[in-house]
Design a protein around this nucleic acid. Sequence first.
DNA 1: ATAAAAAATACAATCGGTTGTATTTTTTAA
DNA 2: TTAAAAAATACAACCGATTGTATTTTTTAT
Lengths: 344, 344
Amino acid sequence: MSEEKEITIYDIAKHLNISATTVSRGLKDHPSINIRTRKKIAEAARQLGYRSNTFASSLRSRRTQTLGVIVPRLNSSFMSAVLAGMENAASREGYNLIIAQSLEQANKEMENAETMFNKRVDGLLVSLAYGTESIQHFDIFFNKKIPVIFFDRVAAHPDGANVVIDNYGAAYQVTRHLIQQGCKRIMHLGGNTLLNVYADRLRGYKQALADHKLPFDEKLVLNGNLTEEWGTEAAQYILQFKAKERPDAVFSANDTAAVYCMIALKAAGIKIPQDIAFAGFNNDPISKVIEPNLTTVNYPGYSMGQAAVTSLANHLNGNTDINATNTIVLRSELIIRDSSLKNK
Amino acid sequence: MSEEKEITIYDIAKHLNISATTVSRGLKDHPSINIRTRKKIAEAARQLGYRSNTFASSLRSRRTQTLGVIVPRLNSSFMSAVLAGMENAASREGYNLIIAQSLEQANKEMENAETMFNKRVDGLLVSLAYGTESIQHFDIFFNKKIPVIFFDRVAAHPDGANVVIDNYGAAYQVTRHLIQQGCKRIMHLGGNTLLNVYADRLRGYKQALADHKLPFDEKLVLNGNLTEEWGTEAAQYILQFKAKERPDAVFSANDTAAVYCMIALKAAGIKIPQDIAFAGFNNDPISKVIEPNLTTVNYPGYSMGQAAVTSLANHLNGNTDINATNTIVLRSELIIRDSSLKNK
DNA sequence: ATAAAAAATACAATCGGTTGTATTTTTTAA
DNA sequence: TTAAAAAATACAACCGATTGTATTTTTTAT
């Protein structure tokens, strides 16, 4: 239809024979503009095909209605659920999302942070990269009082809020469940313990053992990157044990490693759960497909994304002080499936 | 470290006793600025902690270095691969991504398009929603010569480019493969045929049947939303056939439906592939976990994302005319696994 | 009817770069 | 040595909305 020249508030002003100021305020429903005038302005704007110029607006008002998101990787079932939840909440709150991935590299994460900073995002949502050891690169945000929320993979910072699940508690529950099934030598497949998520899961595992008077054996903990290949390798590690010493259960810090470990063990003739019981973490779609179905922890990615954005938006709107709610812990739950049910 | 007042080009200008114009041009390596001056400017900028103000820049130059992405849903394995590829290419080309989901609703898609338009994205990447019947809401972009690229779920438009795979050809190959395995009554689980992807897959299926002198039977085509639940229901449909008429193969338009259909059939005592052979589409992670492993078509989501963004960026940089390359077809490949190997 | 208070509107500076054109400086050629 | 051409830099308007303050209009009270 129409095109050519862009309509500005000045065009509306001229059209109605009023000032640009009034138009500007009228369009935002400013109370000091007569309600009839506001109506006329809105009508004229519609007629003329006006659309607001975000830059001009942001340039002056210093707000962009944009949130930055930095994640290690976009392509995981968990992360895409998080993003879906974030997008949902952001759109409800009138924000847009700018998304970047660090690919697990600290320097990429720093670059991303800088870009987001220059784009003047109103707030930042971060799940930290594998390789990130310091979070100094977010100081530019803290210094400018731009709120930063860490989720999933978090770091402690006096000015940043965290959105997490109770990794410790969940891991404790999983381990206790395995113990209750009669398992005595429970192996743990873990991730990089520099990251809170994996450190906490390991802690929960250890504590559950201790509370049930089971010894902690270093040989029963294997840390790695939790990929398909690594899960397969972990199976080889398990098969090396002498019959007597072989673990009778595996608690993996994610479902991918658990599933590929199971596949390899099954191929080697191990019966699951009879010989070795299994439990994973995340409730990834593959956990419902593997046979036997994998016991796991439901990690509410969608809710986490929503919670993180909602909390950020509340803060930006001045509804809540971000320091008041420093940490949000979401409920996760143990999902028991056949892979861990020895007595059935 | 530093904070307080923002450094502008005027500060740099004053600092070096030159004009703001020179600073502006110098920062962009404009050829008409002496190279020594450029060095001095860059150095001063660094020292003073200057960061460019995107709005001021965009306001004048009318470019945002931002691309809009509208997808039906973020949380699918395929889409997250696409996004990862897009982000990768975008970051390489110096663009940011603004992402929104239509949740398969046409009106949400329209809203998103409008927001993107107001945010003045330099280009738009779209995979259409289920419910979208007209693509008029993108006319605002076409009118302003803002390039739009459709991917995966596309629509024909004289000014819009498409990035797709050869759905027809892939479906043809899958069907032919099943026929070559000796299957005679091949069922097709399909999606909404208003969408190119599903329409083309159905066409490929039909043509392969025709080319091999197999009759087309309407009762052997079931269209639905291809979810887990629907896949389970499809199994019930299949079980209703009389023994003689029961399909001996299933070609599903996605892996999710295929896998959940398989699970239900296996529970009912059907042997796969002996009784019924299976093939899916997408190469979803679950296809490698189900037993037997699912024959499928590898859908290169990551490459698709990269290709779409790269093509858009090239166009924006004036390297290529978008009308010159109207359609990009990516290579997909048939992955044969045990679920379809009857003779083994 | 008139002064004071409240409501509505307008003025004008501002945000921070960008860009067409003009001016100054340097280089080249005669 | 000087005029012409090329290179480098500066001027100043501009992009389009926002906002503190001033002005005008309307309402209220006396």
